[in-house]
Simulated assay, not measured.
Amino acid sequence: MKFAVIVFPGSNCDADMYHAIKDELGAGVKYVSHTETNLEGYDGILLPGGFSYGDYLRCGAIARFSAIMAEIKKAAEAGKPILGVCNGFQILLEAGLLPGALRKNDSLKFICSPVKVKVENNRTMFTSGYEEEQTLTIPVAHGEGNYFCDEETLASLKANGQIVFTYEENINGSLENIAGIVNERGNVLGMMPHPERAVDVLLGSADGLALFQSIVKQWRESHVVKA
């Protein structure tokens, strides 16, 4: 399996994501510029955290117009796994690949700390390696991670099992403690916590590694040639 780590102007977690895939997961990975217009050679697409385009206007608001986004939408439509972390989550929301929005933290302060995150749905291609309601320790680093959506969208997220991760303690004001959601099809995940920064106990936690392992496991199972 080969992953693409999308690099936007202002991305600063791309190296973390690359390390997690190459050195900890042991899978193929390559940096791909926001100017590229072809993602056909990749099986999974990763949008890292950072401050794309300096977070001007709104977080992710300018990045959504990058040339690569048309290809990311095609990959999503083809059923390929798409993961957006922190700023990557913000970009997926701005691009309409996930519902809702991210507002400034209730405290109006930047939060950078390990947090407890609960697995709400372990029946996705991203979470099959976890137990349902398992508690993970994964760091966050954001100023605009306060997830919000209207009542109709929230009801739909609940009914379809699209709420994948929640905070054990609401750190930023997010509706229903939401930390990560998937699209209806289940192949696009956006989350504020950084699993790529929790792939080795030397980093304080290895709880994020199973997320990437789950993606590879699902990909391998879907590509098994049946006799």
Rank of each mutant, 00 (worst) to 15 (best):
A70F: 11
T166E: 07
A4K: 04
D16G: 03
M125N: 02
S156T: 07
G129R: 01
R103T: 11
A155D: 15
N172I: 12
Y42Q: 02
G173N: 11
I138H: 02
K158V: 13
S107R: 07
E221L: 14
K158H: 09
P114Y: 09
R64F: 03
G186F: 00
N177Q: 09
A67Y: 06
V188T: 13
T127M: 02
L92I: 04
S113W: 08
N183H: 05
V201A: 11
T124G: 05
S33H: 11
A20F: 11
A75N: 02
G100T: 08
A76V: 15
G26M: 15
I62Q: 02
V29Q: 03
E36D: 14
N121Y: 01
I72L: 03
A198V: 09
D43S: 10
A159N: 13
H34M: 08
R64P: 01
D23F: 12
I181Y: 01
E24P: 06
M1L: 11
G143K: 03
Y56P: 00
C13I: 06
G28A: 10
V201T: 12
G88K: 02
A27Y: 09
K158I: 13
L209P: 03
C149M: 11
T35M: 14
E71Q: 12
G143L: 06
G186R: 01
T124C: 09
E77K: 15
A76R: 03
T124W: 01
G49H: 05
F51K: 05
A15I: 14
V188L: 13
A95L: 08
A198M: 05
I215Y: 04
S128I: 06
I215R: 01
R185F: 10
Q213G: 13
G186Q: 04
I6V: 14
I6R: 02
A78S: 12
R103P: 07
A67L: 07
K73W: 03
S52M: 03
S205T: 10
E94N: 03
Q90M: 09
K73G: 01
W219R: 07
G50W: 00
T153A: 14
V140H: 07
I215V: 15
V119M: 09
T37W: 09
K22F: 13
P139W: 00
